[in-house]
Design a protein around this nucleic acid. Structure first.
Lengths: 172, 172
DNA sequence: GGGATTGGGTTGCAAAATGCAACTAATCGG
DNA sequence: CCGATTAGTTGCATTTTGCAACCCAATCCC
């Protein structure tokens, strides 16, 4: 896990990296999407060490991605369920998955994401402009929002200026 | 980093987690999107230890996300540039960022993603059905694709059956 | 030309995270 | 009541991270 650094105060990428940036958290979320809920299910299906699993589940519950509920029929078992917030990660998971299939070896065509009701494959995840055109990485810019902290704002402004300078250099 | 586990053979989420599932890789990619290219830039802007940075850059170059090129004007400096494959992570980065802003405290409205040409804010990243409806997590299913390895296929089929059973239980 | 500086590393060592196996404490089923 | 099951916890070995010092080639400065 990375140290807390000055300039990453409220950068959303830094925040999500601090939460999910390890070898297991995303796998746990994936398992939860696939229907796992019990401690044992996560353990066996992922092959994760029990102490690490305990640690991650606690972290995910604290962050509000999972909720922990003792089963009513058997008070030994505990159910971890995705919250609304956890379910909202589906675009992230699918985008990651689609990227892997296209850009890593040996995992293309290994999963299909379909709409449950129709069985039809979903669309590829895209970045869309306000009026619906698909945008490429080069057509995008990150700007500080109204609540960016000073360090983040400085970083993003510097990036803008650098991009401006490079554009001017390419076509003076 | 997680151990290689039997049942995660060619699961794309497992593969991308093995590559980017640590506290720095995504931050490095983000910095690259913001225009960093030199070793020093990554080091200073992220506050990452040099040996770790060396290690990650090498990994990302090997995976084909970055390319390493000695500068022509100064042969001391090295430029790490996003490849097409690395740039293709933009939907992932933006989806993560948007999720953070909506679901983690203290980072809403900290960044705005805009189309460079128009300055207009882009759309929220969505999961879309074949005919363009926005789909919620609950409306999705993961099925094994034609090249799923046996373990992955087994896992996904089991998840399907579990989902089927639960649906039958809810409305018998 | 030559000494200082810069850029991109490597190395050694301390601290933290991870993995494994054995151990608990509740609860259940018979 | 007894053995099995569930969700943890604990202790210890291994691996990964972080920090600081060192290295060496290329460049700067005069």
């Amino acid at each position: 896990m990375s140290k807390a650094n000055p300039c990453h105060g409220n950068c959303p990428i830094a925040r999500v990296t601090a939460l999910l940036g390890d070898g297991w958290s995303l796998m746990i979320i994936r398992e939860a999407f696939l229907g796992s809920g019990k401690f044992n299910e996560f353990e066996k299906r992922l092959g994760i060490a029990r102490n690490i699993l305990t640690n991650r589940l606690r972290k995910l519950v604290e962050a509000g991605l999972l909720e922990r509920k003792a089963s009513e029929t058997d008070r030994r078992v505990v159910e971890y369920r995705l919250t609304r917030s956890g379910r909202a990660l589906s675009p992230v998971l699918i985008a990651l998955s689609q990227w892997s299939e296209q850009h890593l070896s040996d995992c293309s065509h290994s999963v299909r994401y379909v709409e449950r009701a129709t069985g039809e494959e979903i669309q590829r995840i895209k970045v869309l402009s306000a009026d619906g055109r698909e945008l490429d990485a080069g057509e995008l810019a990150m700007l500080p929002g109204p609540d960016a902290d000073p360090a983040l704002k400085a970083r993003l402004v510097a990036a803008m200026e650098q991009a401006g300078r490079e554009a001017a250099h390419a076509a003076p």
